[in-house]
Write a protein that binds this DNA or RNA. Structure first.
Lengths: 199, 199, 199, 199
DNA sequence: ACTGTCGGGACACCCCGTTATT
DNA sequence: AATAACGGGGTGTCCCGACAGT
């Protein structure tokens, strides 16, 4: 039965996401997932060969989602600095639920860092973003809106660092701050420069 | 015998650090540590009440080290922008061996995020740095070297984000880049601003 | 469809035989058999109620085959000693492929030895052979071709022991020896006696 | 504590032997063994790395035992035919408890036949016996007590076949027969020859 | 006749921490 | 201070069989 199968598949994924976020990958037992999903272990291992596989499926979903989203926003940018600022203002959905997603992501990276085969898969999105931002900055220099002395690649790294760093911090005090605002501020600061310009 | 005891203690810590970095905390068994340290399980539990305790000891060491280092550099700074740039140029030793340390740190944070009692202990250093940088920025505004419109707290978050973000990236492509340089560039960019200033 | 059904049935049996021989009964999963046979699990359980049932079917086939063969040879024997020797010279097809069959047989016996219901079924062929040989030997004594002091039953056991023992050995060094020859030799030795007869 | 350890070790082996014999290797769970031995799983895996290891230990014990026994008897033989007959008369202890031991042995062989590394270890004793008997028969021919036309190696195989075959049969009807007697009969028959000698 | 999906129950292995012993 | 033995309690994985659907 097609329909039943898909539903089961989805329920496993959902249950797993919740549990991984709440207790971590290692601390989450397959039995936990099954119980939370209302599914038997047999069904679980019919749909996924391994607990790891659930993890990966989750990750793929999320990365794909993130990808399409960012790509869309990036292409829509007209003038580069404005584009970046605009982009920064549309990150709510990243921080929303980010503390859980970020943790899953972190766990994935940490696991991947021990398994060379998976490693490439894990860094691929990072490198794609790196290139995307590098292109943007070169474009900005060419179009004259950005200081021509800056290194596009370093700048790209910087932007990504800010993204990652804020994401990480967002789960250090998840409730206290409006990370959306902080991000916008950050990008603006980056754009305008921190030093006071003499009159 | 005092001497023997201390040596055993140290060997356990060393072995644990290596293994945690290589395989992760959960994946590293107490038995593994004992084997790597050439110590029996009894000796292990004579020195540490728990595997977690080893972890914490490791962490404390590192944080203390980081603390004294940063504190020293921060206090020596005369003018704020110059101080930050100078500080950025002395981060080699952070990136050196950072990929392993950072991973340990990340794991610790992730674990701590589930255990409220430990959580405060885990975010404490972060918040201390946050305040330190906030102070610096207010100082910078007061002394007139920084744009008076910037938010000290947001800026502090930004700097920390850059630090964290670059550290994370540094273990995404550990060998390819001179992260020391990237950090210096980053801070400089932050200081000078990205946008081209009209003449 | 009749034709398809039979083919599936046969393919399952073939696949099972191969796998049982290669990996053993317990180590062979139903899934393995299905995969090897190119059949779905549903089909499998449509044709056989149990993995055991496949085993039994395999066994029945083989025993029936062995039965008809031996029976034919035995009845054709005129003079008893000659008949035995003749019989021994037609065992190629038993040793050929025997190592795998013998292992299946052994596994079956071992399993059967724990299940009293199946046990009788398992020893039945053994006992039939025992009686057959016993009859032969009594015939030999009656017809005067055999030493009248020998115990027909013990001798029957001896012949069977030789058969079993050589079969077992044949799979201890499967390639090195021509077991056909060894069997013939064995029976001849048995017939002529080992001790040198004084003139 | 040395003493306690050895006792635990022994109890595990004993329990395992009983259970392996009664239910077979695969059907015997580690938990069963532990329960039967009155030992915790932790203790079990402290003494043996694997269920297989218990199996092997059992086997080694038994083979060593068998070895020393046979070796002793063989060397004590004066005249070859007499020696063999004498040897045959001292096999009670082999058949005693043989049905269980034989099954363990069979299981081991079957397992070994799938694992090339263990295979050599498994056939070694067989080959040693083969050579021992071959030597005996050559000695018999030289000393003139045996027919000089017989092939020593084939004869050795024959004797071993009889041994194996009777052992196997002994577990087909374990209680009904005095296998000790059958063995003696068998060897005697072998020695005297089956065919009636004309006067 | 054949398929995909599911159920539930083991099982081997391992692991962290303790305790008797030296 | 250090050891070997030990205690239990999971864990992921897998497996045999069932059954609704085609």
């Amino acid at each position: 039965m097609q329909h039943r199968s898909e539903e089961t598949h989805a329920r496993i994924l959902n249950a797993a996401e919740t549990l991984f976020a709440k207790k971590g990958f290692d601390a989450t037992g397959v039995a936990d997932i099954c119980a939370a999903a209302g599914v038997s272990k047999g069904a679980f291992y019919h749909h996924f060969p391994t607990k790891q596989a659930v993890f990966q499926a989750l990750l793929d979903n999320w990365l794909a989602q993130l990808d399409t989203h960012l790509q869309a926003n990036l292409e829509a940018a007209a003038d580069v600095p404005a584009g970046l600022v605009a982009m920064a203002s549309r990150t709510e959905h990243i921080f929303e639920g980010a503390s859980s997603r970020a943790m899953i992501l972190l766990e994935f990276w940490m696991q991947a860092s021990r398994q060379p085969e998976i490693w490439k898969l894990a860094v691929a999105p990072y490198q794609r973003y790196l290139e995307v931002f590098e292109d943007i900055f070169t474009r900005g220099i060419v179009e004259g809106s950005l200081n021509r002395e800056l290194e596009p690649r370093s700048s790209a790294r910087l932007v990504i660092a800010i993204g990652m760093g804020l994401l990480l911090q967002s789960f250090f005090d998840p409730s206290g701050t409006n990370w959306q605002d902080v991000t916008e501020d950050g990008i603006r600061i980056l754009m305008n420069g921190l030093v006071k310009r003499e009159p």
